[in-house]
């Protein structure tokens, strides 16, 4: 099975960087998400997860470190998390980490909490140090 890599970019739309590793099962989505076709984008990732779990029993870790996403993207991200919840309910080993910046910006944390409540998936909230503004 192939890895899936999508380079993050900020052009007409804002594409998050996607790194899905078929060998290690360590995956990440990082950056900003404002997309022309958000559902197609996240469905592609969900399809990769489903293929990943079709093989032997594997552990998947998804690190989500999103600094901005519009509401259309947020609905597509929720769909993706629900796909992962279904895999977990089938007994697959799924870990999802949601990274939020420190200090004093709780909005990204709250987005993560809302995703956890809506998807029913357990999500680890992990604080990270914000880089200094250039």
């Amino acid at each position: 099975m192939r890895n899936l890599f999508i380079e993050g970019s900020r052009d007409t739309y804002f594409t998050p960087q996607v790194e899905l590793n078929a060998k290690t099962g360590i995956c990440s989505i990082t950056g900003e998400s404002y997309l022309e076709e958000p559902f197609e984008f996240y469905e592609k990732i969900s399809a990769w997860f489903s293929e990943f779990f079709n093989e032997d029993d594997k552990n998947l870790q998804l690190d989500l470190k999103l600094t901005y996403f519009n509401t259309s993207s947020s609905r597509a991200i929720l769909e993706m998390l629900r796909v992962l919840k279904d895999h977990k309910d089938e007994g697959k080993d799924v870990t999802v980490n949601w990274y939020y910046p420190d200090p004093d910006d709780e909005e990204i944390l709250m987005e993560g909490e809302d995703f956890m409540e809506e998807s029913g998936l357990e999500i680890n909230m992990i604080e990270y140090e914000m880089e200094e503004e250039m």
Partner: peptide
């Protein structure tokens, strides 16, 4: 507002493919 957003996002998902409807 958070509760309303969760409710809208969960119930009308995909109803309008492009629009977030929770904007």
């Amino acid at each position: 507002l958070r509760a309303m957003k969760r409710e809208y996002r969960s119930s009308i998902i995909k109803a309008d493919h492009k629009g977030g409807n929770i904007g």
